[in-house]
């Protein structure tokens, strides 16, 4: 943990309440999605946020992306607290720096837009590149970097497989040169062999673009392979936090032990394949 003094992202005791209004005052109810969640993401590190569904993992991701505002608490990116930034200020200072890859690769792409255009559009929004041909070159480079062919750039999302589409989504997120990439269950929908390929790709890209990852998942077997630190969320509370060795070697709470126990016994050969 060499970079711990200078975290790229700090999440300071955020709370998120969802209020559902009923017909009467009695019918109204408050759901505490997140309670006092704090953690730090160090530069060029991977932080894994794990927990069962409904534990608030994705909400945390959306709040960090400023797609939602926390009820209280603050998020700090490179020393700037952007929790209360206006939409234009967010656009100017934060948007391009924090990118997210969603779980469902199909829904994250416009079905009527060729994938090349989707990537070029990302560059247009971020005002990167001078001309359309310039941006198209960057898009082609990125498409090839994530392991697709430049010939596929004119294709539409329905002409790809899920694994290919997730590569497109990764390419679109990375083409704007973010510093943090949030992966919200990004490999969970892919089958195991494709999952391994995409995870390997992510590891390579992390070095190449000096990225920090926030890896949101329910799958602890993936976490062991990719993460530096782990935070365990349960019902909106961060119940345990530590390095991979600490969490896997010496879990402190029963909940974490249960999660670890739910990992299917890995086939030793497959395990080596993934670690390689």
């Amino acid at each position: 943990m060499t970079n711990q003094e200078n975290p790229i992202l700090q999440v300071n005791s955020i709370y998120k309440d969802f209020i559902s209004r009923g017909l009467t005052r009695k019918g109204a109810s408050v759901f505490h999605a997140l309670q006092n969640v704090s953690f730090e993401l160090a530069g060029k590190q991977t932080y894994a946020l794990v927990g069962e569904s409904g534990s608030g993992k994705s909400t945390t991701g959306r709040i960090i992306c400023a797609l939602e505002k926390p009820t209280t608490g603050s998020i700090v990116f490179e020393g700037n607290n952007y929790t209360d930034y206006s939409p234009s200020l967010l656009r100017e200072r934060i948007r391009g720096n924090i990118q997210m890859v969603f779980q469902d690769p199909f829904s994250a792409l416009n079905p009527r837009k060729a994938v090349g255009n989707a990537i070029v559009e990302a560059l247009e929004i971020q005002k990167i590149g001078d001309s359309r041909s310039d941006r198209l070159d960057m898009a082609v480079d990125m498409i090839e970097r994530v392991g697709l062919s430049s010939k596929q750039i004119d294709r539409f999302p329905h002409q790809f497989s899920g694994g290919q589409l997730q590569r497109v989504n990764i390419a679109r997120a990375l083409v704007v040169r973010p510093k943090i990439l949030i992966l919200d269950e990004s490999v969970s929908a892919l089958d195991v062999s494709v999952q391994a390929q995409v995870l390997n790709l992510l590891q390579d890209l992390k070095e190449e673009f000096s990225l920090s990852y926030l890896f949101i998942t329910h799958d602890l077997s993936v976490v062991r392979f990719i993460a530096d630190r782990i935070g365990v969320l349960r019902k909106g509370e961060l119940v345990e936090e530590g390095t991979v060795e600490q969490i896997f070697g010496n879990p402190r709470t029963d909940y974490t032990r249960n999660l670890l126990g739910s990992i299917p016994l890995p086939d030793p050969r497959r395990h080596q394949l993934m670690a390689a």
Binding site: C65, L67, R95, G96, I98, Q99, M100, E121, I125, V176
Partner: peptide, 8 residues
């Protein structure tokens, strides 16, 4: 959401 997150 992706477009919003890109700053569109």
């Amino acid at each position: 959401q992706v477009l919003v997150n890109l700053g569109s």
